[in-house]
């Protein structure tokens, strides 16, 4: 998984031994502090509700820096989705360079058409986020495409510039 925005550029490799959890390594370039670092990450599925037309997920997420154990993060992430609608939240508490802050983002979206299995799928979303350092909220449009095992997501705001997210499922 590759990710790039105004704060970081990162590559995240993770492995899921079961649907309940995944472990991985995230190597990132922190653009704010101008440092390169790596996190050992753990994501754990706390709750999943499957219905005929929807799925709800709540995850615990965490990461710890390899070389500085006091640099870490943990939080909750959740989503609700149908084939047409999507809503998610993400809340993290981070400790970096002796600074503790929180990050939160929320996203709502819809699929303009319902593709079949194997088609190109498209989601149009609106994302909003803030952190306790700047205390400023920003909102921006995001578009997500996926086909087969490849997912591409991109958003743009004048404040935060580009958000680019690329994922391949092996």
């Amino acid at each position: 998984m590759g990710f790039s925005n105004h704060l970081k550029e990162s590559i995240y490799y993770h492995y899921s031994p079961s649907h309940k959890y995944s472990v991985g390594v995230e190597s990132l370039k922190n653009k704010y502090y101008r440092t390169n670092l790596s996190y050992l990450r753990l994501t754990y599925l706390l709750k999943r509700i499957n219905t005929k037309d929807s799925q709800v997920n709540v995850y615990f997420q965490s990461g710890i820096r390899f070389d500085k154990f006091h640099d870490n993060f943990f939080g909750l992430r959740g989503d609700w989705e149908t084939r047409r609608w999507y809503v998610d939240f993400n809340y993290k508490e981070l400790e970096t360079n002796n600074l503790t802050y929180t990050h939160q983002d929320y996203q709502v979206g819809f699929a303009p058409y319902l593709g079949e299995y194997g088609d190109l799928h498209t989601w149009v979303m609106l994302k909003t986020r803030t952190n306790s350092l700047t205390k400023k909220w920003s909102a921006y449009p995001v578009i997500k495409f996926f086909k087969g095992n490849l997912l591409f997501e991109s958003g743009y705001s004048r404040d935060n510039e580009w958000d680019i997210h690329l994922m391949y499922r092996f």
């Binding site: 219905t51 037309d53 929807s54 799925q55 989705e81 084939r83 799928h121 997912l151 499922r169």
Partner: peptide
């Protein structure tokens, strides 16, 4: 199958 709402998730 319940919870099969997304192509990307159903790949598995």
């Amino acid at each position: 199958v319940n919870g099969m709402v997304c192509d990307f998730c159903a790949r598995g």
